[in-house]
């Protein structure tokens, strides 16, 4: 799908008027349109509420795949990933850019997906925790670092920490503990397992250098 599908707002408006046909098109074109759990599920409701509730079809590049998905203007990437693309590995811990549990890579840079509007990442390369391991199941070296060191406890923060580390290591592949701590300091762990996490992430960095 190209950007010009979004250029004219009437296109999406027309689609939402005839949602049945719209969904047929979406299915036929291989787009993902799961039940819009947290969004509008029926036209009357969409019309009854703010204009921002109208969804538009866009294409995202997630974990190397083109994913077509309809999103609202104000929809965050975390919600799109979790509730429309079925990628629940990205966690929502605060939904306000405080904890980092929702960190994903956007063009190789870690971002809080809870504070990123989905329509702003069209044409960008998004990688989530589900996209790190190889197709054969071989773990990313940073994931392997977690296994090697039994990093993390409850692990609700783990996807965010791992993505932040993978992103940081692209800029500094051979950090000291203090440098890496600085690099992943936007992520909270309430089990307060920071020491073991840092050890696991340093091991991951080492795995990456060896790979």
């Amino acid at each position: 799908m190209s950007d010009n599908e979004l250029a004219d707002p009437r296109i999406s408006a027309e689609k939402s008027v005839s949602r049945r046909n719209f969904i047929k098109i979406v299915i036929a074109s291989g787009a993902v349109s799961s039940t819009s759990y947290l969004f509008r599920v029926s036209i009357p409701l969409a019309q009854a509420s703010a204009p921002g509730a109208v969804e538009r079809l866009i294409t995202l590049t997630v974990n190397g795949q083109q994913r077509r998905v309809d999103v609202m203007k104000q929809e965050t990437l975390a919600m799109t990933l979790r509730y429309k693309l079925g990628l629940t590995g990205t966690k929502i811990g605060c939904d306000r850019a405080e904890c980092g549990a929702c960190t994903v890579l956007i063009d190789d840079v870690p971002h809080y997906s809870c504070s990123m509007l989905t329509h702003t990442v069209r044409g960008k390369k998004i990688v989530t925790i589900e996209g790190l391991a190889g197709a054969d199941g071989k773990l990313h070296p940073v994931q392997q670092g977690v296994i090697d060191e039994q990093g993390f406890q409850c692990a609700f923060c783990m996807p965010g920490f791992v993505m932040a580390t993978v992103g940081f290591l692209k800029t500094n592949p051979n950090p000291t503990r203090a440098e890496l701590a600085q690099g992943i300091s936007g992520n909270l762990c309430r089990c307060q397992d920071y020491d073991k996490i840092l050890t696991a992430m340093m091991r991951g960095a080492e795995n990456m250098r060896k790979a």
Binding site: Y37, L38, G89, K91, I129, E130, I147, Q150, F152, A155
Partner: peptide, 26 residues
């Protein structure tokens, strides 16, 4: 290595909000 770690590190571990059921309300 504890038996739950692979699912955790690949994002496959399901916490409460990761479950879906048909016709689920909010």
């Amino acid at each position: 290595t504890t038996p739950d770690l692979y699912a955790k590190v690949t994002g496959r571990a399901k916490y409460a909000e990761d479950f879906r059921a048909d016709g689920m309300l909010f």
